[in-house]
Design a protein around this nucleic acid. Sequence first.
DNA 1: AATGCCGGGAT
DNA 2: ATCCCGGCATT
Length: 379
Amino acid sequence: MEAERPPASGSGCGRPPLRTAGRDPATAPVSVPAPPQGPAVEFALPQEPEPRAADLGAPGAGAAGPPTLSAHIPVPAHRTPPGKARLDEVMAATALTSLSTSPLLLGAPGVTFSTEPCLEPWREAPVQPPGSGGSWDPASDQSSPSTPSPPLPPEAAHFLFGESTLRKRKSSLQGLFQCLWKRCGKVLSSASGMQRHIRLVHLGRQAELEQSDGEEDFYYTELDSGMDSLTDGLSGLTPGSPTALVPPAFPRLEPPEPLALPSLLRLPALPLPPVLSTTSPSQVCPSDHAHQVGEVTGGSQGARGHSSASSQGCLAPVRLEPQTTPVRACVPALPAKPSANPRKPRGDAKKCRKVYGMDHRDLWCTACRWKKACQRFLD
DNA sequence: AATGCCGGGAT
DNA sequence: ATCCCGGCATT
């Protein structure tokens, strides 16, 4: 199974056309005569990649792991504070709307619809098929550091905006906008906010390109006076706590200091907050256990990645806000097909394929193996 | 040409 | 759901 790399250094020079198989090299190298030439002691042996790399890697990387976990801000899913906050917002908005519209309706009690359906698509990377002979697992080891990231991202950024957005909702004409995305149904009170939501969360675009092709417009609709739709969306409300109507403002949120820099910087990197503590772990790790050239590649790529990242960060501040928002009322017609999907710009991060190479395909993350968007080295 | 990955087929 | 690949956009 694994006896492959060792022979790589080849005894002498004759590297058999083993791996040339363009298609599935991994399967080929099953039988390696492994001629243990007594006399000629190649220094290839010692560098064997297999030897419980786990053990070796543990102390170094492991040390950083645990502490970080307990250390960094606890924003786990359990607490779901952000979500709740948002709910409150929605409710508040609802209340406002209803008030300004007609004093008699209302009944917006305890909402229960989950706001963020797109928070889970996580894990995958960490898991390692039990079937892989338990050999050479550093892969999983390295992937783990990047995994602990998850719990809040897309929303966080978004949340910041939300504030300003919500703030100005007052003056607007009581419109509510609902996301029409599959099972999202998110409701915001401003069109621009909604556009941003869609752009960020669904279209996967970043905040940078503030100009939209109007693409987002297809994915949300405005619900005005029609309380029906609203109620529909909020079905599951329990008249239980009527007093909870207008909650005591935002529970948490620290608007004071994260004013300019932090927030702006963080935006572009929406998917992984932990990055702050560990400088792009995903990029460092792979090179870590990478073979010989690992260092070189890792170095250059690291630098590149960094620079590009930072440059992007610099671009971020380009968010203006064209006050357009011409009260669109009707959606053309929820396209049977979400129109041409904007193929992703393609991230600059090196993906499994590049990092591990065609051979070692077994080290790729599943997504990569399936020619899907890489999940290990996300952009 | 190599790479990343969407869309869709097979199981 | 899992696995795979044709084919296309991008580099």
